[in-house]
Design a protein around this nucleic acid. Sequence first.
DNA 1: GTCCATGTTCTTTA
DNA 2: CTAAAGAACATGGA
Length: 286
Amino acid sequence: MPELPEVQTVIDTLLPRARNAYIVAVSHVRADVVHPAGFDLPVALTGRTIRDITRRGKRIVFVLDDGNRFYIHLGMTGRLTAAATDRERALHTHLVLAIRRGATVGEIRFCDPRRFGGIFWLGCGDAQDADMGPDSLQITPAQLLKRLSASRRPVKNALMDQSVLAGLGNIYVDESLFAAGIHPETRTDSLAREQVALLCRSIRKVLRRAIRHRGSTLRDYRDADGTAGGFQKLHRVYGREGEACHICRSAIQRIVMAGRSTHFCPACQPAPRRAPVRSRTRADRS
DNA sequence: GTCCATGTTCTTTA
DNA sequence: CTAAAGAACATGGA
């Protein structure tokens, strides 16, 4: 469930309990969530201190006192929580860090039923995110224009691609396109410069607002304290198929793009004039 | 039993 | 060749 606002909220709630925490022990490691395969996480982490936790796209990056880093990706159903040692452990808990801060002890737990998430060791090298686009909270109109004009895909598909722009997922792409009044099937190479600039502002605005409301909880997502988010109540299109658009009262539509549910207002986000999304046919190429 | 789900990566197709 | 579409991954809820 976690897109940028949820990941940021997890970090914001985890940091007060984890910064400068000493890792006493590492347990409940499920081998197939650790990358690279076979990496000895207990050896690397036991006795280290967590200096900081930062975010890059949807990645939660832990910075250790020895200069090494690793990140946790929550995938679809991952949860990262701070819990009292004696509190019952959830099913599908795949990593537990026993920590001590001064006189306070506790645990950081990673739980992920579907196991689409994982723990990724980075070491201390540079260029640890070379395959990722600019962060969605920092993106500038010029950067976005450059990235989008490099492809001819529907804008929805391009925005879902983490190498184009890091941090957006299915919910916030739909919400951002609605905020910008752009139909998801619009091809990126047909977006005007001003549309891209508006989209850029919309993305940042939607994300900041979602963070303010502590993310969207549809089912699984919780912050590090176990608290649900509130932004799902403020979604304008996501999950609102058939309901009235808050702006124009038209019925919100749902289609499938890139294998994902895609929601938009047919009036506020007018369909592209030429060649919508469909794949090219033999006749098109001749 | 069916379909669907907040994500990423590998494979196949065009 | 590259770009993009599609399938696969694993679990649970409706």
